[in-house]
């Protein structure tokens, strides 16, 4: 009955369709509370309808759909929606760019990534980049255990394209499927595992039920996920609703900070569905060393990617100098 909002009332109300990369179970945490709050505070002036992964538009067409106005706003990383900007490679799990989730807001707000992102999307017609936050770390959840680098060989793993390209250097076979199909694909043997999230998400979305092992090493402490909007629709918003939407995005970013940070530790300690395994530090150092080569290759792509890589390098050096608790090695 709540749906039967008569059109007369709806005319003055601004309506947005926002599609997230997340399926319903995950969205329940990472976006729905903030959208519900937004709708409540907007008090009938504006309503955002939330759609889940692939619901209205397949993820691959999401960017274009937003550009064309089929949907008004998107929550996703740049990599997953194949945003047509050179810096989209950094959106998903860019190997070893971050160690902790707080690294992401620091990089964006204090080291200049925000300006770079604004510049890059300024060149793309019809879409405005709004904000980035830290999402979860990148760990392997697999059916069979990983104890050494060799165990990665031949594993068909669902992961981000950029992370996948990097991991394929260790024999991983990256597979891309619609997010909602992952659980079933592990069960039907299309996938051997997932390198797409931390353990909190594994438990939340049900991947912990179909895999047995969790690798504690990660190639990224957090990815940067973003909000985007159709430029025209964004410009149409009155100032106070723009501000309200910014608060809404920040509230979602903030929720993730504590949800993941606490959740990862708690599930490692108390979780019963997945057994933890670890690759020894000396061996994992090989992966980190390989990442440096990967960084240089990406830096060679465009002047802007070089700028980002330089920032990563500077940040990593600063954190190392700062010592504990920023970096322990």
């Amino acid at each position: 009955a709540t749906l039967a909002a008569p059109a007369v009332k709806a005319q003055s109300k601004i309506k947005w369709r926002l599609q997230t990369y997340a399926g319903p179970a995950l969205a329940e945490h990472v976006i729905k509370p903030s959208i519900d709050a937004f709708n409540k505070v907007a008090n009938g002036e504006m309503e955002i309808e939330l759609y889940f992964a692939d619901q209205l538009v397949p993820t691959g067409e999401l960017f274009r759909a937003m550009q064309r106005g089929t949907i008004d706003a998107v929550q996703s990383d740049d990599d997953s929606i194949a945003a047509p900007v050179d810096i989209s490679v950094f959106g998903g799990y860019f190997p070893f760019a971050t160690r902790y989730s707080l690294d992401v807001p620091v990089l964006f707000n204090q080291y200049g990534l925000k300006e770079i992102w604004e510049e890059a999307y300024g060149e793309v017609e019809g879409v405005t980049w709004l904000s980035a936050g830290a999402w979860d770390p990148c760990h392997f959840a697999t059916v069979d255990p990983i104890n050494k680098l060799d165990d990665l060989k031949g594993k068909r793993v669902f992961t981000f394209p950029t992370a996948g390209k990097f991991l394929s250097r260790f024999g991983v076979v990256p597979v891309t499927l619609p997010w909602e199909d992952i659980e079933v694909a592990v069960q039907t043997g299309e996938l051997d595992g997932i390198a797409w999230s931390g353990i909190t998400e594994d438990y939340t979305v049900g991947w912990a039920d179909v895999t047995n092992y969790f690798l504690t090493n990660n190639i990224s402490g957090a990815w940067c996920g973003s909000y985007f909007a159709n430029s025209e629709r964004w410009e149409e918003l009155p100032e106070h609703l723009k501000e309200l939407f910014k608060l809404c995005m920040d509230s979602s970013h903030y929720y993730r900070q504590h949800w993941y940070w606490g959740g990862e530790a708690k599930l490692r300690v108390d979780g019963t569905k997945m057994q933890l395994t670890t690759i020894a530090d000396e061996e994992w150092a090989k992966v980190e060393a390989e990442a440096e080569k990967f960084w240089d290759e990406i830096a060679a792509q465009t002047p802007r990617t070089k700028k980002v890589i330089d920032i990563f390098k500077k940040y990593a050096a600063d954190m190392k100098k700062a010592g504990k608790p920023y970096r322990y090695s």
Binding site: D54, L56, V57, P58, G60, E61, R64, A65, R68, G69, T70, I71, L177, P178, D181, E190
Partner: peptide, 21 residues
């Protein structure tokens, strides 16, 4: 319902079908 933005829904379905492995 969605005006010009809705004009792409038909073809979007073709992309969705492709990904339905």
């Amino acid at each position: 319902m969605w005006g010009d933005g809705g004009s792409e829904m038909a073809f979007s379905a073709a992309m969705k079908l492709m990904k339905w492995y």
